[in-house]
Nucleic acid binder design. Structure first.
Lengths: 170, 170
DNA sequence: ACCCGGATGTAATAAAGTAACGCCTTGGCG
DNA sequence: CGCCAAGGCGTTACTTTATTACATCCGGGT
């Protein structure tokens, strides 16, 4: 399971973000070593940039950051690093946003459902298994074999909902 | 329910396509009249173009067709017509493809799940309700309120699967 | 006739993504 | 060590997708 209920809430709640970034980065390096893939400086930095927030960043946003730090300033620099991260399950691409977000649960379910808050723009990963199962079932009845799914929800996270209407929570 | 199992199969199976196109177009005109919206020539023609196949078309693909028929040849012409159709539930936007497809079941479930065949590229609509429900449930446990959902599956339709391996069906 | 809003059309530009090529590093091997 | 092959990085140039801004036109109401 990619993400428990508490973890969804934790994504949106204020927290010491350095800690989760660090944890993920460590796991990432380890996993890549196992696969014989190289976490080069650009790639590592790209992942760090994504990890600095729970938001999804556009490729050009990432590119600007990389360029400012001495890496190449042409689009392929960012796209290659991002593609590498996605392929190795360290980042996800959000179709609705044309943007990328670090995977916070590498190694678990590599095709989670995404919860995108329209207010704070943070992105959480939710367990996609039950959702995918429902879809696979519906599709299968029509003879369609599902191979890959995109599940993205736009809505309001608990933290933002509480801010919008601080006393209407109960 | 936007689409029964038989209807999913029907989308991918060979069939007289003029018939389903015609039916949808008639319904569309009627529905728009109710809403006080105008199905102008560009809009109508755009819908017809989308209805000519079960595939999703890129905005520029539609634009080329429109331009060839005497309509404007600048991007906003196509984007405006497509946006109108989407807003009135007569077409859908497919995020994965950056493309648009006619809605074959206007008036039912306006946010269906999409089944995209990677072989024939046709797109079917499937009932999203159970899928959305599963997602809403998972998200709700984390305090996230789902508002809009994107569900798109990439896979192989029954017709293409049968062609790939004609005798492995049983 | 006049005005108004919506629908069209245009040019221009932004944003997102890809192709093609050369150089440099890394790591294996004689 | 010297050599080579593969992969990574950087560049230029380009394609595809989408939007902004503004002029014009058409239809309905007064």
């Amino acid at each position: 399971m990619p993400q428990t209920d508490d973890q969804i809430a934790a994504t949106f709640a204020p927290h010491d973000h350095r800690e989760c970034a660090h944890r993920v980065l460590d796991e990432a390096a380890e996993r890549l070593a196992d696969q014989g893939a190289r976490l080069t400086p650009v790639r590592r930095r790209t992942l760090e940039i994504l990890l600095e927030s729970h938001r999804a960043l556009g490729a050009y946003e990432v590119l600007d950051r990389l360029a400012a730090e001495g890496f190449g300033r042409q689009p392929p620099v960012a796209y290659r690093a991002l593609e590498f991260l996605v392929q190795h399950g360290l980042a996800h691409r959000l179709q609705r946003l044309n943007a990328f977000a670090a995977c916070l649960h590498p190694g678990h379910d590599h095709h989670p459902a995404f919860l995108i808050c329209r207010s704070c723009h943070k992105v959480a990963e939710a367990a996609a298994a039950p959702v995918r199962e429902a879809l696979t079932h519906v599709a299968g009845q029509g003879g369609f074999r599902v191979e890959r799914v995109t599940i993205e929800a736009l809505g309001l996270c608990a933290t933002c909902a509480a801010e919008d209407a601080p006393d209407s929570t109960a």
